[in-house]
Structures are given as structure tokens and as C-alpha cells.
Amino acid sequence: MAQRQPPVQQAPPAQRLRLRYAKRGPGRFTSHRDFGRALERALRRAEIPMAYSSGFSPHPRISYANAAPTSAASEAEYVELALAEVCDPQKVAAALNDVLPHGFVILDVAEGRPESLGDLLQVSDWKMTLAGAQPGVLGQAASRLLDRDEYTVERLTKNGMRTFDVRAAVLILRAIDDQTLALRSVHQTPLVRPDDVVTALRQLDARVPAQALLTRLAQGPLVGERIGDPLRESPVMQP
């Protein structure tokens, strides 16, 4: 007769490590699910002693936080690993870098802290490259957006058409040169993405190119006027 043994209860993790990693070149075109599969396989190749979840199909305990959208490059993605044995964080990072596919690089590592990664990742800095923009267009469009108190755009999501207040999410938006914008945005719910900002700019000025290549440069807690290191710093409210 049937022999479904009750699943073994797994021991709690011995250590939590938080990693900062970059998505570059071909890596930018992975979805967060693609990255998840690639990371799990790299962890097995590197023989990192992962803690596993309990249940009939145990899986390695990995927490993802605020992944960049597919086709955005990033220098500041974060993930937390739960390990079954205590390891030297630097050795784990080095072992992973040896076996990760092209386009993914672990840049930094630290022991986990009580605040969840999700709570620490409050704001992001983005570089948005809009090839073919005419001189001055990006700067003017950015100023027009910043002049508003509120500016909504629509985007089709899995749950249908949704409305996003782009203006409320923008802290900084300025042209670095004719084809590049620097954006600092707050992670709200629902999350305003950089491409929503491009949509808004195009609505304000049709000369803004439709296609933007996005790169996340940093994300973390807001520490006064700057973005803090989420592996080591906590948010500091502005006075």
C-alpha cells in the first residue's frame, strides 16, 4: 500500500548570508525566475551547504528581494541564503563566482541582520539610456514631470490594467547628458518601475525615445540624503 512517509522536519539554518550581485551583459536578459534556477544550480556546483525547506519537495532556502525587471542590468541586486553550516562569507562568494554563468558576479557578502532585506531596500538609483534622444529633450521632459504634484501612467499587469503615480516615486530625475537620465526612485506599493517613468516622459514629450536601456546602480535604505549599504546600514530618517 501507499508509503508516503511524513516529511522530515529540517533543522533551522545555521547561518544567513546576504549577497550583492551584478547582472551584466547577457545576464540582464534573465527574468528573476531564470536567475533563481541559475543560482540554485550554481550553489550545487559550488557545494554550498544550503539549508533546505521541509516538506515533500525540499528546496534550498533562498530569499529574493526586489529583483530588477527582465532586460535591466544591475550592479545592486540582493539575495539572502540560509546555510546548514557556518561558512566564511568571503569563501562562499568566491566559490559562487567560480561557477556562476556569464553575466552574474557576486560583488559583496555579509552576515544576515534582523531587518529583512525587503525593508532595507527602500530606494534605487537608475541609469536610463535613451539612444537617439535629441539634445535637451530629456532634460526638459524631466523638468516637466518634476513640476507636477502627481502624474499617473497605466501599465498592463497580470491582474489587468493598473495605474501608477510616477511622480510620487521620483526623488531625483535629471539628464546627465543628451541621451542619459539619472533616476532615484522610492520603492512603493505598487512599485513604480523605471519604464513607467519613461512612459510618463513620453506622454509629456513625444520626442522622448520609447526604448530605454536600464541599469540599476544602487539600492538600499535611505540614509539622510544618500543610499546606504543595505548589507551594513539601517535607514536614517531625514530630520
Binding site: 545576464g27 536578459f29 544550480r41 527582465t70 556569464h102 526604448q211
Partner: peptide, 23 residues
Amino acid sequence: LFDRLEPLLAQVSKPIQYVGGEH
């Protein structure tokens, strides 16, 4: 051809299938 491909890839579904770089 990657420099010419990159801007196209951002506009299509599942671009990862075209970029290689796999382990």
C-alpha cells in the same frame, strides 16, 4: 553582433533565449 542585438532584445519576449552565456 551583440551591440546591435542588445537594443532589440529589450523589446521581445523571453530575450534570455537568444543571448547564450550559459554555464
